[in-house]
Design a binder for these strands. Structure first.
Lengths: 135, 135
DNA sequence: CGTTTAATTAACCATGTGGTTAATTTCCCA
DNA sequence: TGGGAAATTAACCACATGGTTAATTAAACG
């Protein structure tokens, strides 16, 4: 029954966290954010350090805007962009859950936990001598 | 001369930070990481909570592995996965640069900086054929 | 041996992405 | 009133992604 999975997969907007991470997954867009952290800027200003065309920058800005990472206003024919902090805050909050994993002597926390769990061989290793669900 | 841009654009592996953010930009993969934070697991174990096929999970694991977010070993026919902390640490370090933007009374830091810069109209208004000074 | 279990590979599909050039919109101003 | 600057839209291209089903590899076991 592929109907439902297709309905679910296509045209589904990304959840906010996914949209944020996706927007951050491009060096041009990260550079744009870095520039905006120094103050608002117009599109041509933002495009200036890059070797790409204006439309390409416009597309990057759209991605950033959809992710809520920038807001845009109008000022005559300029569309100044500004950094918006909320998604960065949320992304940081998500990463914080894993802080213990990269910090200090807990770099090997996985080891520790795995050992705690005892042998528990990887997968569903229950011998299941009895007739298992055939499927 | 589109030759060079094509050479640059295509088949270029992502820089590590981009690969990490791209890998995090999917709820399934984030759920897999959350599961792995509780200890190593096999592919079928990881796939169990999801409604997708095994091959789909295998693909997600490949993305995570390429980003260095997981490591894999062999154990008979199982391929246990474990969380690897380094990329999470690096992603967090990148986000830290922006902490001031989402913290406390600095939520409006952009405002502050923009004001500091004075009028400095948005774009490269360096032409300035005549004293514009709008607004 | 053959069967079962674990997992990957292959082939396919629809859509998203990151770039291009060319055309178009929108606004200021002489 | 019309030119020019800022920016977006349109149409296109080459992959990448996230999913599917079917086939295949690899190891354990009876």
């Amino acid at each position: 029954m592929w109907l439902i999975s297709h309905l679910v997969n296509y045209a589904m907007p990304l959840d906010p966290l996914s949209a944020t991470f996706a927007a951050l997954a491009d060096p041009t867009r990260r550079a744009i954010l870095a520039r905006l952290s120094k103050g608002e800027a117009s599109v041509t200003e933002l495009a200036q350090p890059f070797e790409m065309s204006l439309p390409a920058v416009t597309k990057h800005l759209k991605v950033l805007e959809r992710a809520g990472l920038i807001t845009r206003s109008r000022e005559a024919q300029w569309r100044p962009c500004r950094l918006a902090p909320k998604p960065l805050k949320d992304a940081n909050a998500w990463l914080e859950h894993y802080r213990e994993f990269w910090e200090g002597s807990f770099d090997r926390l996985e080891d520790y936990l795995a050992d705690l769990q005892g042998q528990k061989r990887p997968a569903r290793a229950r011998k299941a001598p009895t007739p298992k669900k055939p499927k």
